[in-house]
Amino acid sequence: MSSAKFQLLLVDDEPLILQSLALLFEDYVVHAAESGIKGLEILKHHPIDVIISDQRMPQMSGVDFLRIAKDISPNSIRILLTGYADLQAVVDSVNVGEIFRYVHKPWNAEKLRETVRFACTVAEQRRAMSIAKAASGAIPALHQPKDDAPSEFELLFVDSNERHLEQFKAFFEPKYRTHVSTKASEAFRLIPNHNIAVVVADSHLNDVDGSDFLIAVRDKFPHVVTVLMTGSQDAKLAIKMINDGQVYRYLVKPFPRETLRLTIESAVIHHKILRENPAANSKTMENALFRNADSTARSIEEMLAALRATIASKPIY
């Protein structure tokens, strides 16, 4: 596969980083910008497949840049490559920037190449899909107006606190049929038997770690969209959820009800996109590309064991 047709946009206030990266990706079409403002300018005029941006930059931060970039060029895959990002920036990079990977500086050249190669294939699929959609005129509106018509999709909430579960159920029913569980193992068995679009889990569960659970869900059911709720903010956890779990949102408790509602609405739309075009799903692609997926594994424990083995063999940043 020749990468020459792919276009990269590099954004970093350090020119020597740009120089170095441009040579790492010399077989791509590389655009370099020393600021977010310049990056946005380039984005308007070139079909960029993958954006690699620093976080700490004067004037416009990486997350701010990626948020606007997402609106200008929704099909571009966004990667944050940074020497340091505070917790808020990491969380925002998921929720606002919808980034594909979080990579630390200094990076490993070969692994970054691999990540970018993979990101390009995902971008290519996304573009193909959106062209098809445009032709049929059915691009789903991202900001759907509030509408209470019952949905065909179902939700699953997993939390060790039963009172919270009741509140979630009361809040989303009857529009969405809402399943709840205090146990990850039970929840995991539930998914294949229902039309579940979104799984929301707390990071603290009774049996397994909530973040591990969501990573397993994503791995086994790539079309399901995952949302992590956590009370303790932790940049490391957030980065793990981005890189290994492709979590859709990272919610820090307590959050307003409206935030949860909007999150679920857009997660359901995201799920529709994934289901209608599996090729657009980076997780499906990744599974196909990188894993000899153990399709016989059934229980969450087996899944987790298999998953840990895969993660251990995957690029780590």
């Binding site: 990266l21 620093d54 490559l81 020497g83 200094p106 050249a109």
Partner: peptide
């Protein structure tokens, strides 16, 4: 980490 990034690369 920024200089470390390009030095290593």
């Amino acid at each position: 980490n920024t200089p470390l990034g390009f030095v290593r690369n």
